[in-house]
Design a protein around this nucleic acid. Structure first.
Lengths: 117, 117
DNA sequence: GTATTAGATCGACAAACGTGAGTCTTAGTG
DNA sequence: CACTAAGACTCACGTTTGTCGATCTAATAC
């Protein structure tokens, strides 16, 4: 699938002249890039990525008390990761009594997912 | 698509008893999670994400001198971002004379992409 | 009421990050 | 040879990150 670009001759151009015209521009516009980078950044930690994986595969709401023992970090640290995912808009939570149930917001990953494929 | 979990009754369990059995486990294994998180982390910066976007859409090799003017950062900073992408195995480069041409390694994004969709 | 529990928040710390100014290396020009 | 240009690298900086211990807040049990 990678089609070779027609490469410019490897010669030095005249002084003051541009080495090459910037023929390519990012057409993933700034806001899209910002949004997708935000999501990617939130997924850029192994624990958070696995959290999302567990929540997604469960396709429902998972109690935090089920999540904590799965990872080798303290409860505050896990809570911190969940907050990062919440702030990124990837998951949301619902309080019921003492428990908190987390779930993935399905649309949250769509933009990044379709850009990647 | 999200199927509601059968939620446990919201009552306090007896002292010393587990609040709930950890019925879910991350089956994205550690190494996969590590690898995908590494890729996601590299994409977790707007400039790097746009860099990958430009390189991907060009489906060939793009000269660094074309990339620098596209972004509002200094040349060393852009070089730093390109190195991050190289370290993450997302892109590679080829030197030809004075110029360096970057391209995306297509397989690099596959794992994350298919996990996301 | 008190005690206990789930989970979020705070405070602190070291490590990693994004950035630019400056420098270095390599390659082409004259 | 000296000069110039492309791009990587080094250093320094302020900011953000991941982590844990301690604390706080609700809600339940007694």
């Amino acid at each position: 699938m990678p089609v070779d670009l027609e490469l410019l001759p490897k010669q030095k151009r005249a002084a003051g002249e541009r080495c090459c015209e910037p023929v390519v521009y990012p057409d993933v516009h700034r806001d899209h890039a910002l949004r997708m980078a935000e999501v990617a950044k939130a997924l850029g930690d192994p624990i958070r990525l696995q959290l999302v994986d567990v929540l997604r595969r469960h396709a429902g709401k998972v109690c935090v008390c089920e999540l904590v023992p799965l990872f080798d970090v303290s409860q505050p640290t896990l809570s911190h990761h969940l907050k990062k995912l919440r702030d990124a808009g990837i998951v949301d939570s619902e309080r019921r009594g003492l428990w908190a149930y987390y779930y993935v917001i399905p649309e949250a990953l769509e933009e990044l997912s379709s850009w990647l494929s």
